[in-house]
Design a protein around this nucleic acid. Sequence first.
DNA 1: CGTCTATTTGAATGTACTCAAAAGCGGTGG
DNA 2: CCACCGCTTTTGAGTACATTCAAATAGACG
Lengths: 195, 195
Amino acid sequence: MNSRLSLIRANIEKLIVLSDSEFDTFSKYLVLRNIPKKHKFLSAGEVCNYTGFITSGCLITYTIDENGAEHVIQFAVEDYWIGDLYSFITGSESAYNIEATEDTTVLIIHKNDLEKVYEQIPKFERFFRILVQRSYVALQHRITLNQRGTAQDKYENLLQKIKGIELRSTQKHIASYIGITPESLSRLKRKLHNK
Amino acid sequence: MNSRLSLIRANIEKLIVLSDSEFDTFSKYLVLRNIPKKHKFLSAGEVCNYTGFITSGCLITYTIDENGAEHVIQFAVEDYWIGDLYSFITGSESAYNIEATEDTTVLIIHKNDLEKVYEQIPKFERFFRILVQRSYVALQHRITLNQRGTAQDKYENLLQKIKGIELRSTQKHIASYIGITPESLSRLKRKLHNK
DNA sequence: CGTCTATTTGAATGTACTCAAAAGCGGTGG
DNA sequence: CCACCGCTTTTGAGTACATTCAAATAGACG
């Protein structure tokens, strides 16, 4: 547990400075949750009343469309924050599933508890505000990339962002994320390998 | 001016309820700005210290990539809020240009003044928070659509979202928005017309 | 070991791209 | 007001990239 706490503390201290006692106050609200491979952290239809910080493992966020096809929206590994922001903020049911692609451990904090943290340590407001902005900007960048980049661009971009993700998730999920079929990704990989 | 004010009031009152005096307090901070066709509301490199509400006209948000190519991120017409949220919140230089595709009028409110509004009428915090969330969710939806939808899907989706946009913007911009070449869009339109 | 799923490979098809050229349209200056 | 210029849109031809459908192979898991 100690190494998990130092991981999350280091993550937070990239943006705000914390005293030991402030961090203790915060960390008392954290709950450890294990998600075995192929199990869900969040299911579509549930309300996401918590935010999570991944201390180990890998999660994918995906939706299922009207034809039953999965669309992977995001990959997240250790040192990432995870959840459905919209559901979290509005209290509405989530449209997303968040599922482990390998055994994963997450530190979660419930919405009520986060409110208490805000009251006790206002600079956490700043931390989470910046977190939200960053996800917004990340989305904007992704839209720009998706607009004109080739499948190869998107694949290389993903590998660069999350090193080793090819080994931690299935090809099917990665193909879905970059918006091509698994067959095309298979061919793309062969092409890259032959260079 | 009166019709502009009733437009913005109606827009705000979709989310929060305002008394006349509250609305007056708010509206005193609004500044009217005219943007002639092809002129910019915001240029890349500037800090976006204001948020705007379009009362008439049409604006596009776009970036210019390292090869000099334009990428249209968003269309906005009357009754839309516009700006670069990231630049607005962080005070950093914007990466985006926002330009009028026809003569446009915008009511803007400066960041400082918005802070004053928050102090005087706290429920405006709620209004702008929801606005931000909605743009976030809109982006997520667009990513999902872009992932697997064909160019035709994306085109029809845009037309449905902003009726008549084909007549108010160039084909080049629309093609850029949906991520295809102007030539391809020309062919797509012919195909749709022949049905 | 057997079953189920993921991945690879092939062949034919489709969609969008590039490059090139013609036609259309809008704004400017004479 | 018209002629011209520049930019947008259309159209054509050939090409590249990704898709679909089908089948074979490889891997994971009980």
